[in-house]
């Protein structure tokens, strides 16, 4: 085993750190995750499958997938645009833009949800105008999408910005001297350079979009079979003493997240190997 000079002479420190990390991961990640799956199957497969067959559960699953299917592409495009601006150009107010991109990370999701109620709610700024035209934003799909887009916006931009900054502008400048248009250089130079980071960002964004609770809870209206996403539906089941069903749906949500993370890990390996070949 090859150790770096910094840790070579301190096996005690090294093993303490390893044991501590493993312990923390077991207690805070592995055990709760195992609990979700054991609870889900405690009353047998039939109960768990019956929980998925419930029309309200199917509606919650479809709604969650739909919201993610809208929010993730929107944030992919928005995130690329934001990262492109920040990494490749100098302009006044750039720091402010970076701060704004990160804002959803620092604001509590509940507040993010309430902001939309204040703007689009019936008593809000745009509420009366929207209501006259019969447009329902809050307590309906558009509100859920807005809240999810807001909360998950930083993921793509934050993964891309450091990489794009590190890569600098030289390749784009070279492309420009060879006569490439802005769009050509973006499509043929910039994007291929960041595509693995982009995929990582998209997957993280997707995991969060499906799991978001706070912001979505505020704007959902909690209408059974209509505006309940999976996280909200899990809470409802739990509150109705349907613990097995609640954990069955929770296990499905956890599985979706695990699949996402697994895909991300695979991609990172794959991209690492490609880089070595290149």
């Amino acid at each position: 085993m090859i150790s770096s000079p910094a840790t070579r002479d301190r096996p005690l420190t090294r093993w303490t750190a390893v044991i501590l990390a493993v312990l923390l991961l077991t207690v805070f990640l592995a055990l709760p995750l195992a609990a979700v799956f054991t609870e889900a199957l405690r009353r047998g497969w039939e109960t768990a499958l019956a929980a998925y067959a419930d029309p309200d559960a199917q509606s919650a699953i479809m709604l969650t997938l739909l919201v993610a299917a809208i929010a993730v592409p929107v944030n992919t495009l928005g995130g690329i645009a934001a990262a492109w601006c920040v990494a490749k150009y100098e302009f006044p107010g750039k720091r402010l833009l970076v701060a704004l991109i990160e804002l959803p990370f620092s604001v509590s999701p509940v507040i993010s949800g309430m902001v939309f109620v204040l703007v689009f709610g019936a008593q809000g700024w745009l509420g009366p105008w929207l209501q006259e035209r019969g447009v329902q934003i809050i307590f309906a799909l558009p509100g859920l999408v807005l809240a999810t887009v807001f909360v998950t916006f930083p993921f793509v931009a934050r993964t891309l910005i450091p990489l794009m900054q590190e890569q600098g502008r030289t390749e784009e400048e070279a492309a420009a001297t060879l006569g490439a248009s802005g769009w050509q250089s973006f499509r043929l130079v910039t994007l291929p350079n960041v595509k693995w980071a982009l995929l990582t960002g998209v997957l993280l964004c997707n995991a969060r979009a499906m799991g978001e609770f706070g912001a979505v809870s505020v704007v959902s209206g909690h209408i059974r079979g209509e505006t309940n996403t999976m996280p909200l539906y899990i809470e409802i089941l739990y509150n109705e003493y349907q613990f097995a069903a609640a954990f069955a749906v929770a296990a499905l949500l956890a599985l979706l997240a695990l699949v996402t993370l697994f895909a991300k890990t695979l991609l990172e390996r794959f991209s690492g190997r490609r880089r070595e070949i290149a």
Binding site: G121, A122, G127, Q136, I138, G221, I223, E226
Partner: peptide, 17 residues
């Protein structure tokens, strides 16, 4: 369809649209 929650917050939701 029905929606359930604390009575005060449910009234608030109806007021909010």
């Amino acid at each position: 369809n029905s929606s359930h929650g604390g009575s005060g917050s449910q009234a608030r939701a109806v007021i909010d649209g």
